[in-house]
Design a protein around this nucleic acid. Structure first.
Length: 416
RNA sequence: GGAGAGGUGGCCGAGUCAGGUCGAAGGCGCUCCCCUGCUAAGGGAGUAGGCGGUUUAUAGCCGUCUCGUGGGUUCAAAUCCCACCCUCUCCGCCA
C-alpha cells in the first residue's frame, strides 16, 4: 500500500510509472482520494453537531427533551446518508490503491524481464555432468517422484537417504550463519488466516497460487515470509530496537498454477519444499544497507558452497507490486546450460508495513518501518544444484566441505 | 470435542447489573521541575493512538474515531443486543 499523500510527488510518480502504473491510474486515485477527504470532512462536521446535540439532551430538562430529540433525528438521517456515500467512496479508493505498486528505487533499471542489470558474475559455467539432477537424484535413491505423484500428484516427491541428511545439514549450517548475524531463529505457523494473507500482500493477487484448507478457513503459506510478517503486525516498535532480523524455517506450499509443462525435471519446481527465509524489520533510514546485507549473506552461502552464479538487479517491470528493489541470485545449472534463480532478496520499503500497520517510534516521531525479505536457503532447489555441481564422473557425490561437519559423511558412492 | 471465565491506555486495574457529567478512577512505569552532600525517599506538573482540518511544521489548536473485531438498538453505548476473533482454567483426546 502506498502513501496517498505522495501521489503528487514527481519522483514518486516516476518510480510508480517505471513499475507499470499509468499516470491516468495515479490521477484517478488522486482525485478519488481528494473527494474522499472532502466527504470525510462533511461527515465529521455532521457528527460534531450531532454529538453536541446529544450532550445538550443529557443536560436538558425533561420538558425540553422531545423537541431536541426531534432535531437530533433530523441530523441523524442526514448523517446516515453521507456516511453511506463516504463508505462507497472509501471502497473505491481502496480498490484503486491495491493496484498501485511500490515505486522502484532509483537504482533499479527500467523495462521488463529481459532488462535486468547484471551486478556480478562469479565462477565458471561448468559443463553438464553425466546425469542431470533428475537422473542423479533417482540413481542415488534420493528423490522419488513416481511415488510422490502416486501418493499426492505431480510435482510432489519423496526425498530420501543422504539427501535428507544433507537437507538437515544445510538448514543447520545456514541457521548458524544467520544466528551469528543476529537473526532470531523462528519456526512459524504454516497455516494462516485469510486476513494474514491479505495483510502480507499475497491476497488477492496471488490467491490462485495458495492452497486453501476451506473447512477451517486457513491457508497454507507459500513462504514463511507470510507468518514472519505477522510477527509485528500492528506493533509500535522502538526505533532503537531495530533492525529486528528473523530467520524462519518452514515448509512452503505452492500450487504452481499456470506452470504446466515447465520445469518438470526432478524437484526444480514442486508443490512442497522447505526453506530458510530471512525477514528484516528495519529503520527506514537504513533499509538499503539491510538490503545489501541480505545480498551479502546470500552470496556468502553460494561462495562457501563454491557454486557459480550471477547476481541481477531485477528490472522495474518485473518486480511485483511490493518490492522497490530486488536482487536475484541465479546459479549456473549445467544440465540446462543456463543460470536459474536460487535465491532473491527484496526491499519492500514501507509498502508492506503500511498495510501491516507496523510503526517505529523514534526521536523524530513515529513512522512506518521498512520490511525486507530474502531467501537464505530453498532446500530442495539448493540440493538440486549441488547434485549437478558435486556429482563425480563415476556417479558418486562429494559433500561440500562446509556441510561435512553437519552431515557426518564426505562422499556418497554411486548406486545401481 | 465438552464446560466455564475473561479481553479497558506503555503495564496493572476500576467502571459494565441501574446508558449521558467516561477517552476513561487509582496505581506502576516514563518525562520535566522542586527539594536533597551522593543515592534512596519526598513534593509538583505532564504522559494513548489513528484519521481529517488549520499550519512552514512530525509544534499548537479544532474536529472525529478507537475500551478485542464487526454489526445493531438509542438523540446518546466501555456500559444494552447479535455475530465473530482471541486468551485463560477444567474435562476429554493426542505427538
Amino acid at each position: 500500500m502506498i502513501n496517498l499523500r505522495l501521489l503528487d510527488d514527481e519522483t514518486y510518480r516516476a518510480g510508480a510509472i517505471l513499475k507499470g502504473a499509468t499516470s491516468e491510474q495515479l490521477d484517478e486515485l488522486a482525485s478519488a482520494e481528494e473527494l474522499r477527504r472532502t466527504m470525510l470532512t462533511e461527515v465529521e462536521n455532521l457528527r460534531s453537531q450531532s454529538n453536541a446535540v446529544s450532550k445538550e439532551i443529557g443536560q436538558a430538562s425533561p420538558e425540553d427533551r422531545p423537541a431536541k430529540i426531534d432535531a437530533a433525528n433530523v441530523l441523524k438521517t442526514e448523517l446516515k446518508e453521507k456516511e453511506a456515500a463516504l463508505s462507497v467512496q472509501q471502497a473505491a479508493v481502496d480498490a484503486l490503491v491495491l493496484h498501485i505498486p511500490n515505486p522502484a528505487h532509483e537504482s533499479v533499471p527500467g523495462g521488463g524481464e529481459e532488462d535486468f542489470e547484471l551486478v556480478i558474475t562469479v565462477g565458471a559455467q561448468a559443463p553438464p555432468p553425466p546425469m542431470d539432477h533428475g537422473e542423479f537424484g533417482a540413481s542415488l535413491g534420493w528423490v522419488n517422484t513416481e511415488k510422490g505423484a502416486e501418493v499426492s500428484g505431480s510435482r510432489f516427491a519423496y526425498l530420501q537417504r543422504e539427501a535428507v541428511l544433507l537437507e538437515f545439514a544445510l538448514v543447520q549450517w545456514v541457521m548458524q550463519k544467520l544466528v551469528a548475524r543476529g537473526f532470531i531463529p523462528t519456526v512459524p505457523p504454516v497455516l494462516v488466516r485469510e486476513q494474514m494473507m491479505i495483510d502480507a500482500g499475497f491476497f488477492p493477487t496471488d490467491e490462485n497460487q495458495v492452497y486453501a484448507v476451506t473447512e477451517d478457513e486457513l491457508y497454507l503459506v507459500g513462504t514463511s515470509e507470510v507468518p514472519l510478517a505477522g510477527l509485528h503486525r500492528g506493533d509500535r516498535l522502538d526505533l532503537a530496537d531495530l533492525p529486528l532480523r528473523y530467520a524462519g524455517f518452514s515448509s512452503c506450499f505452492r500450487r504452481e498454477a499456470g506452470t504446466y509443462g515447465k520445469d518438470t525435471t526432478g524437484i526444480f519446481r514442486v508443490h512442497q519444499f522447505d526453506k530458510v527465509e530471512m525477514f528484516i524489520w528495519s529503520d527506514p533510514a537504513k533499509s538499503w544497507d539491510e538490503h545489501e546485507l541480505l545480498l551479502e549473506i546470500e552470496r556468502e552461502i553460494l561462495d562457501d558452497l563454491a557454486l557459480p552464479y550471477r547476481v541481477i538487479n531485477v528490472a522495474a517491470g518485473d518486480l511485483g507490486n511490493p518490492a522497490a528493489k530486488k536482487y536475484d541470485c541465479e546459479v549456473w545449472l549445467p544440465s540446462e546450460g543456463a543460470y536459474r534463480e536460487l535465491t532473491s532478496c527484496s526491499n519492500y520499503t514501507d509498502y508492506s508495513a503500511r498495510r501491516l500497520g507496523t510503526r517505529a517510534k523514534g526521536e523524530s516521531g513515529t513512522e512506518f518501518v521498512h520490511t525486507l525479505n530474502g531467501t537464505a536457503c530453498a532446500v530442495g532447489r539448493m540440493l538440486l544444484f549441488l547434485m549437478e555441481h558435486y556429482q563425480q564422473a563415476d556417479g558418486s557425490f562429494a559433500v561440500p566441505d562446509v556441510l561435512q561437519p553437519f552431515c557426518g559423511f564426505t562422499t556418497v558412492g554411486a548406486r545401481n
